[in-house]
Nucleic acid binder design. Structure first.
Length: 613
DNA sequence: ATAGGGTTAG
């Protein structure tokens, strides 16, 4: 059971401090790092210029070479190398520093997908005896994550970490914060936190980097905890817009509505509500906490909006299953002169998929290419495969994959496999999973999906085979977990196979409800069980699913007329879905369940997803 | 000159 208490702290913090801290100008981080269009790849650099510099180096005319360098917007890697070599030959440390600082100024090199080049240059610098300073280290650390996140680059990062310690740069807040962020982006949460804890001086940026690390690596609880710690421990460090965005994301992931509301209040108090990313994060937080209306209200109050704000709203309607509304907002955005981004399309196509709007989805997919001149990416194909596959047009979905002009990634095959599960298509599932096991051998979800499909087809030998495969690779099925917020406290439940003490009361209630509802037509959907057992055993297993425990807990602990809000870490299983529909009718309760993909709104025996799980 | 954040699909 988890509970946290940001609320009381936020309140007390503000009440004993009557004068707000000096407002720091909200700093929207310069986005050049992640904005490929801001790099200079399109500037035509004079390749003759590079050649000229290089030959000057070879002739030993370092002075002229350096002069030309200052006029060259895009020096190549070779140019830098020859310059550095030339400096070494002439034992001119001061010139080497000039080259070095030029490299630093050209930091965009690091960020424009030239990570490898930067790392190579760094290696050369070390070889030629040019020492690095704190600027070098930040660029080089960034270079490790700028290219694809391969493990070799993580090792490079660790080496550089060692260099940093050896040269005493662990006192630089900038260098250490970049290091935290580097480990965060590689998913090495423990490393990041070790570095963070060891930092002698921390500022808002360092705290925000660590909070973002947790939020991004599926540890939202730790993110909120660290935020709280920041509020308690530091008396001169206040969260800013960037910090708030990360904490909001964590609240959204947890569906921690009460905490989210208090963050909202804090944002208003500190005047952070004019900052677009903050507002977008708020919209999403409310939507993911099941309060779509509140998200819409926040959106309505914005005086300016960018494409991200619109995308936030579109996807919010999408996960709640309001496909038409999502399309309507998408069109309104275009009418207001905001051009859709690739993510707008992903959001609106996803919305169509959740609502089963096949024709509209196809129309939007065409118009994306025709009217908006966008070339669909893998993600868009994945949406289309999902859209068609869910609607039982599996052949059409497979055809889309065949016709793709780019390599279908794991997302695309994953969508197909998911659709095969819904429509029990063993043959196609085997094809898709074969590709998936090659592409992402360590994703346990794929094995479980395939096993599900075999189990539904009563192919128990195959189920066993897939399970063995899963174990052989050292993976395991992720346990189902559901949680519910009652009176500002989070209560979390894990699926249980046996009776166990803390849940005894809930399980007794479930058994009672189950037999009562069976009389009214509820049929346990035992095909979701991956063990070849007899019916009675299977029924016992599905009754122990975490979501049912959470429902039972909600029934006991909410007042009449109060909605039960549950969040789940996996997809909702068919049995829990059907069970919850019955409960909503017979207990006369409104129940809102958010699973990994979307919301299910149960009322009077019906679910908003239209049984489109 | 250097560090942290927003929207996304099974």
């Amino acid at each position: 059971m988890a509970c946290f208490n940001v609320i009381s702290h936020l309140n007390s913090h503000s009440s004993h401090r009557l004068l707000p801290p000096k407002p720091k100008p909200a700093r929207l981080i310069c986005s050049l790092a992640l904005n490929p269009s801001s790099t200079t790849t399109t500037t035509i650099s004079d390749s003759n210029n590079n050649n000229r510099i290089q030959s000057l180096c070879k002739q030993g005319n370092l002075n002229q070479a350096l002069q030309l360098l200052s006029a060259e917007p895009n020096p190549t890697q070779l140019t830098y190398e020859l310059l550095l070599l030339s400096c070494t030959r002439q034992h001119s440390l001061s010139d080497a520093y000039t080259v070095h600082s030029h490299l630093a100024n050209n930091g965009s090199l690091t960020l424009a997908g030239h990570g490898e080049e930067v790392l190579d240059l760094y290696r050369r610098m070390n070889r030629t005896g040019i020492s690095s300073d704190r600027f070098t280290y930040t660029y080089v650390l960034k270079a490790c994550v700028a290219s694809n996140c391969s493990s070799t680059l993580l090792n490079r990062g660790k080496e550089i970490h060692a260099h940093i310690l050896r040269h005493g740069y662990d006192s630089s807040v900038y260098v250490m914060t970049t290091l935290v962020d580097m480990y965060a982006r590689f998913g090495c949460v423990t490393y990041a936190s070790v570095v963070f804890e060891a930092m002698a001086v921390k500022n808002v940026v360092s705290w925000s980097a660590m909070i973002a690390c947790y939020a991004r690596n599926e540890m939202p609880f730790e993110a909120v905890e660290l935020f709280r710690e920041m509020m308690i421990q530091t008396c001169d460090t206040y969260p800013n817009s960037v910090t708030m965005v990360s904490v909001l994301q964590a609240c959204a992931a947890l569906a921690a509505l009460e905490q989210g509301k208090l963050l909202h209040a804090y944002i208003l108090r500190k005047g952070l509500d004019s900052i677009l990313p903050v507002i977008s994060a708020l919209v999403v937080m409310y939507a993911k906490c099941g309060k779509l209306e509140l998200g819409q209200r926040v959106f309505d109050q914005m005086d300016k909006r960018d494409v991200v704000s619109w995308n936030s709203l579109i996807s919010s309607y999408g996960v709640h299953g309001y496909g038409e509304k999502a399309i309507q907002i998408f069109e309104e955005m275009i009418n207001q002169g905001v051009s859709p981004s690739p993510i707008s399309l992903i959001s609106v196509l996803g919305a169509c998929s959740h609502a089963g709007l096949v024709e509209e989805g196809k129309r939007l997919f065409k118009s994306m290419q025709r009217d908006h001149k966008m070339r669909p990416g893998v993600e868009h194909y994945a949406c289309m495969v999902d859209l068609l596959g869910r609607a039982n047009k599996l052949d059409e979905a497979a055809k889309i994959i065949e016709d793709m002009r780019i390599e279908p990634g794991p997302r695309v095959w994953g969508s197909l496999l998911g659709s095969c599960r819904i429509h029990c298509n063993v043959e196609l599932a085997e094809r898709a999973s074969k590709r998936l096991f090659d592409l992402e051998p360590l994703n346990a979800g794929n094995y479980v999906l395939l096993a599900d499909i075999y189990a539904a087809a009563n192919m128990w030998d195959e189920v066993k085979r897939v399970k063995k495969l899963l174990e052989a690779r050292g993976l395991q099925k992720i346990p189902g977990r559901s949680w519910i917020e009652v009176k500002r406290k989070m209560h979390s439940f894990v699926s249980v196979d046996e009776f166990n003490q803390p849940f005894e009361e809930l399980q007794a209630l479930l058994i009672e409800l189950c037999s009562e509802m069976k009389e009214k037509g509820y049929m346990p959907q035992t095909k979701v069980v991956l063990y070849d057992l007899d019916e009675k055993e299977k029924e016992r297993i599905v009754l122990g699913h975490s979501e049912k425990l959470a429902v039972a807990f909600g029934l006991i602990n909410t007042s009449k007329g109060e909605t039960i809000r549950i969040t789940k870490n996996l997809r909702l299983c068919e049995d829990c879905h059907s069970f919850t529909k019955f409960i909503s009718k017979f207990a006369n309760k409104e129940i809102l369940v958010r699973d990994v993909n979307r919301f299910h709104h149960f009322l009077d025996g019906v679910c908003s997803c239209g049984d489109y799980l």
